[in-house]
Design a protein around this nucleic acid. Structure first.
Length: 210
DNA sequence: CTCACGATTAGA
DNA sequence: CTAATCGTGAGA
C-alpha cells in the first residue's frame, strides 16, 4: 500500500438503515451492503468500518448454505427468522463468522460479511486482535474483522438495525466498482462452488486475499 | 454416546 | 503447505 489513505477520512454519515433495507434477498443485499458503514458501540467502545467484501448464501437451493434443502438445526435456526437479524457461528473451533439474515421469515438467506475497511476505533481493534501484523490484517478477512470488533456468540440474533450494532450509509459515498467472483472456501458445494456470489469493492486494499 | 469436519487463519 | 481447536450435526 502506497500510503495510509484511510486515515483522517471525513465521514458524513446518514441515518441508520432500517429493518426493511435487509429484506431484499441475499444476492441483492450482498451488493447493497458494499460501501456501507458498520458501527458497533458495544463494551464502551465505538468501532466503525466500511463493508468492502460480502458473499450471498441462497438458502434452501444453495448447497453451500447451512440451510440447504431446508435443513434446520439449533445453530442455523436464526436464518429462518426475519431479515436484519445477525447469524453468528463459530468455525474451526476458534473463529467467528458474521452474517445478516436477508429475506422474510421462513426464507433462510443470509449475507456473509467477509471484510471491512477500518475507519474508527483502530486502537481498540488492535487490542482485540493483537496478533494482526498491520492495520490491514485487522479487518481483511471474515474472522479477522470479527476478532477485531469483538464479535462472538453474544451477537447471535441481535438486530443489525438496533443500538449495539448497526449500519449506516455515507451521505456522499465514494464511487466504486463491484467485482464478482465465486465464493471462498466452499469447494464441497457441488455446482454452487462456481456461482458468482462473492462481491467486493474493486481495488480496495482490505478485501481478503489481496 | 462417538466422531468427522468446517463460509479460517497463522505460521513454517 | 499444515496445524490449530472445538462446537456442531449426523449417526449408532
Amino acid at each position: 500500500m502506497a500510503r495510509e489513505w484511510w486515515v483522517g477520512q471525513h465521514l458524513n454519515l446518514g441515518p441508520k438503515l432500517k429493518k426493511e433495507f435487509y429484506c431484499v434477498g441475499a444476492k441483492k443485499l450482498a451488493q447493497e451492503l458494499l460501501g456501507k458503514i458498520l458501527i458497533s458501540v458495544v463494551d464502551n467502545s465505538f468501532l466503525c468500518g466500511r463493508i468492502v467484501e460480502t458473499e450471498a448464501y441462497l438458502g434452501k437451493k444453495d448447497p453451500a448454505s447451512h440451510s440447504y434443502q431446508g435443513k434446520i438445526t439449533p445453530r442455523n435456526s436464526i436464518m429462518y427468522e426475519e431479515a436484519g437479524l445477525i447469524y453468528v457461528y463459530m468455525i474451526y473451533g476458534m473463529h467467528w463468522c458474521f452474517n445478516i439474515v436477508a429475506n422474510k421469515k421462513g426464507v433462510p438467506e443470509a449475507v456473509f460479511i467477509r471484510a471491512l475497511e477500518p475507519l474508527e476505533g483502530i486502537e481498540i481493534m488492535k487490542r482485540n486482535n493483537p496478533l494482526a501484523k498491520s492495520i490491514r490484517y485487522l479487518t481483511n478477512g471474515p474472522s479477522r474483522w470479527t476478532k477485531s470488533f469483538g464479535i462472538d456468540k453474544r451477537f447471535l440474533g441481535l438486530p443489525i438495525y438496533g443500538n449495539q450494532i448497526f449500519i449506516v450509509k455515507e451521505k456522499h459515498p465514494p464511487s466504486f466498482k463491484i467485482k464478482k467472483t465465486k465464493r471462498i472456501g466452499i469447494d464441497y458445494a457441488q455446482e454452487a462452488k462456481d456461482w458468482l456470489l462473492r462481491f467486493y469493492i474493486e481495488d480496495n486494499p482490505f478485501v481478503s486475499g489481496s
